[in-house]
């Protein structure tokens, strides 16, 4: 009995493969359509991912940076640190030397590192980084505290980029929402494409379906190959899209490395994590399953 079930399953897979092969032009069109849809969604994902990466690497939202004057004395530096720790707004304070700042920059902005190292003197001043307490960003005392720091004799400038980072995060969220919306409509297009491809395949196989019904084949054995076909198309389309996206990403990286393009280099940081790649493939697969399911509804099979 179990052997019969295995054979029936093999027959299902075999028929699905033969169906895709017989309608191979339509299969290719369908796979490409899914691949294009998933690829465009992937581009949005990749953009959002890299912008998020920039937000994370540029600055911690709760950190204040005090840029010190080159001539600042040790007493002046210590006074800034004392003032910070007594403010009840700061959790930790640490000094970052010129060399350390340069090393950090080189690690974060690899494409710019060579340019900075070619300068006669280091462009990175010594700084004091202050980690704010969790509630400090909402404190009314914060603006006055920042002004007080800026007025210290050893301080050159005080940077607290929370607004800029918030704006960047807003942009990331917007891109993610747009990506989601565009992805939804593209996925919808892919679903209908697959549904139509499977429906055309069904029309090609209408005689077989009639004959299978007349000889008493169960419905699941009649519909199964078409569903499996849709699923396979979706999987192939999703996988192809992720593959092309990765190749495109590598190509841009190579271009940046060859041309030292600062602007693109600043934005291209990392590829999608495996979970996001899997999500894209599953998205393509779902488009295939839904398209196949729409096509094998009874009214279409009887058409």
């Amino acid at each position: 009995m179990s052997g019969r079930r295995t054979s029936a399953l093999t027959a299902l897979l075999d028929e699905a493969a033969q169906g895709l092969w017989r309608a191979r032009r339509m299969t290719v069109v369908s796979v490409l359509q899914i691949a294009v849809s998933v690829f465009l969604v992937g581009v949005f994902f990749l953009t959002a991912e890299n912008l998020r990466g920039i937000v994370e690497t540029v600055k911690d939202e709760t950190a204040v940076t005090v840029f010190l004057k080159a001539a600042a004395s040790e007493e002046e530096k210590a006074e800034i640190e004392r003032l910070a720790m007594e403010s009840r707004l700061v959790a930790r304070s640490r000094r970052v030397s010129t060399q350390e700042a340069g090393a950090r920059f080189a690690a974060t902005w690899q494409s710019l590192a060579r340019a900075s190292s070619s300068l006669a003197s280091s462009p990175f001043p010594e700084t004091i980084e202050l980690d704010l307490l969790p509630d400090a960003t909402r404190s009314e005392a914060l603006p006055g505290f920042l002004s007080l720091l800026a007025a210290r004799k050893g301080a050159d400038d005080v940077q607290f980029d929370v607004d800029w980072i918030r704006r960047l995060r807003g942009a990331v969220a917007l891109i993610a929402v747009w990506g989601g919306a565009v992805g939804f409509f593209l996925a919808l297009g892919a679903v209908f494409t697959i549904a139509n491809v499977v429906r055309l395949t069904i029309l090609l196989h209408r005689d077989e379906i009639d004959i299978l019904r007349l000889v008493g084949a169960p419905e699941y054995l009649i519909r199964g190959p078409f569903l499996i076909g849709g699923l396979a198309q979706g999987f192939l389309g999703g996988t192809l899209a992720v593959g092309v996206l990765y190749l495109a990403f590598r190509g841009v990286l190579r271009y940046v490395s060859a041309t030292h393009n600062v602007l693109i280099g600043a934005f291209i940081v990392r590829f999608l994590p495996p979970s996001a790649c899997a999500l894209l493939v599953v998205g393509g697969l779902l488009a295939g399953v839904i398209g196949g399911s729409i096509a094998v509804r009874k009214k279409h099979l009887q058409a």
Binding site: G3, R4, T6, A8, D14, E15, A217
Partner: peptide, 8 residues
């Protein structure tokens, strides 16, 4: 027909 009925 036999293929779909799972006959080896």
């Amino acid at each position: 027909v036999l293929k779909f009925l799972g006959v080896p």
